[in-house]
């Protein structure tokens, strides 16, 4: 393994760590800051891929990810937090059990990806080995798990943004020209964040079984 692939692996691992951090973080503002960090790390992965593939497109993509996804989306989200932003939080408990459940989700996800997707679907990857696809898949799974595990609407939206981050990361590794993916995903996210900010005004928390009430 040479240094640049090792760097890409390390940065991908860093995105996973930020995903776990978001999952455990009760403070909404801190979660949004971590989403910024995650987006910046994905931008850095894009720069590293630009060096790895000698392709200038990835530098533009990285800049787009950092500025649009990292800062614009986070700015829109952060405006939605009610008064006394730094103190607004969702009351969470049971860190070990949440972590262990997330671990099970991630591990089952890894094995599904490893034994089904690798062998049957993916044949060509821009990055040298196709094993790297595991990282974005786990980020997507953790985003879904975030939506399941939380009650706060903003936390749900953040889980969705994280999922989309995973899709962008996958596109960086997968397709030679990932601009289309970034643009469509970005439009998706902008629309969702705008709608979700209205929903967040309406109902700030979703309790169990609320949807089933007539």
């Amino acid at each position: 393994m040479n240094l640049i692939t090792e760097l890409i692996y390390m940065l991908s691992a860093a995105t996973l760590l930020t995903a776990f951090y978001i999952l455990l973080q009760p403070f909404i503002q801190s979660m949004i800051r971590t989403i910024i960090t995650q987006s910046v790390v994905i931008g850095l992965i894009s720069f590293a891929m630009a060096y790895y593939l000698r392709n200038i497109d990835f530098i533009l993509l990285g800049l787009l990810v950092i500025f649009l996804r990292g800062f614009l989306v986070s700015y829109l989200l952060e405006r939605q937090i009610p008064k006394r932003k730094e103190l607004f939080r969702e009351y969470t408990k049971g860190t070990p059990s949440t972590l262990l459940t997330a671990l099970i989700v991630a591990v089952v996800g890894i094995f599904i990806v490893y034994f089904y997707v690798f062998s049957n679907l993916i044949t060509d990857v821009a990055f040298g080995t196709n094993n790297i696809i595991v990282f974005p898949f786990v980020v997507i799974f953790l985003g879904i798990f975030q939506i399941l595990a939380r009650r706060n609407t903003l936390a749900h939206v953040i889980g969705y943004v994280e999922q989309e981050n995973g899709i962008v990361l996958m596109s960086i590794f997968l397709i030679p020209v990932p601009f289309i993916v970034e643009l469509t995903v970005f439009l998706d996210v902008i629309a969702l964040v705008l709608i979700a900010s209205i929903v967040a005004r309406e109902t700030s928390e979703h309790k169990n079984l609320e949807e089933l009430r007539g």
Binding site: A106, I110, V134
Partner: peptide, 10 residues
Amino acid sequence: LFFLIFGLVI
């Protein structure tokens, strides 16, 4: 544990 499994996969 998590990165052990990653090591296995990668």
